[in-house]
């Protein structure tokens, strides 16, 4: 039976449809569960409730989503701009790495969520505070993966480039940086998911806009349906951003996916 199922799945495009089917099944169970057990809407709204919410409030919600997306993208871009060059410096300059790495590890150990209210005190409740929270949370995975990737060059390849007469800078540009690409993209995928969390936390503590704000505001008013809708939208944004990292890698560096397989 299992074998039959397996063969059936393998033969067609069913393999790709399977996760979709599981997701639909999950939604159906959720819908059925809430109606069978008569779960009140202020405890757990059904998918149909959330859909209805989107229909009536969707346009307004998109405005909030736009604000959140702005925070995410600004913070994430800033993280990339700091983390990758800093990673390159750390990986190629032993002294700097010895000096900075303990500090970085310590900084990484700080729970950024606990830090968020403090940041608001010093930076105010504007966009700046939220972007800083996003940077603090999405910066480390990118930095660490960049450093790891740059240091993962096989010793023989480094020796070869040395015998070929390449300078430090040439080695970085022609060997180490391209070699680090698969690692960097792993970091970017983790980083962009972290950035979504950072933006929401930022909006929890310092905002009158955005989906994070909407969640807090709606729950304060016992509008769980609206809060859930905002959460669903956040999940969609997170998935979309994660996927776009995959697409970006595939479009720009197709070889780096092949190498991973």
């Amino acid at each position: 039976m299992q074998r039959l199922l397996h063969r059936f799945c393998k033969g067609t495009g069913v393999k790709r449809l399977l996760p979709v089917a599981a997701f639909v099944l999950f939604l159906l169970l959720w819908q059925a569960g809430t109606s069978i057990f008569k779960v009140p809407i202020f405890i757990l709204p059904a998918p149909s409730d959330i859909l209805a919410e989107f229909a009536s409030f969707g346009l307004h919600m998109l405005g909030h989503a736009g604000a959140t997306l702005e925070t995410i993208l600004l913070g994430f871009a800033l993280s990339i701009l700091i983390a990758i060059p800093l990673g390159a410096l750390i990986a190629s300059w032993r002294l700097l790495s010895d000096a900075l790495f303990p500090l970085i590890v310590f900084a990484h150990a700080i729970p950024v969520i606990a830090l968020a209210p403090i940041i608001v005190v010093s930076l105010g409740t504007g966009l700046a505070a939220r972007v800083v929270v996003v940077v603090l949370i999405s910066f480390f995975p990118i930095l660490v993966s960049t450093v790891t990737g740059l240091r993962a060059t096989p010793a023989d390849v480094l020796d070869l480039s040395r015998v070929a007469g390449s300078s430090h800078l040439q080695r970085l540009r022609m060997i180490e940086l391209p070699g680090a690409i698969p690692f960097v993209f792993n970091g970017l995928r983790i980083g962009v998911s972290a950035a979504v969390i950072g933006a929401v936390v930022g909006e929890f503590v310092a905002s009158d806009r955005g989906l994070g704000y909407l969640v807090v505001h709606s729950t304060t008013n016992f509008d769980i349906r609206r809060a859930m809708s905002a959460v669903v939208l956040l999940a969609l944004i997170s998935v979309m951003l994660y996927q776009s990292m995959e697409w970006l890698q595939k479009a720009l560096f197709p070889w780096s996916l092949k190498a991973e397989e």
Binding site: P154, D156, V157, L160, V163, P178, I181, A259
Partner: peptide, 19 residues
Amino acid sequence: LRGFERVAIVFQRPNLLPW
């Protein structure tokens, strides 16, 4: 002479650059 003009090297593994 410089680099591979003077001395070139081949290791046990090909060490080609995948990109």
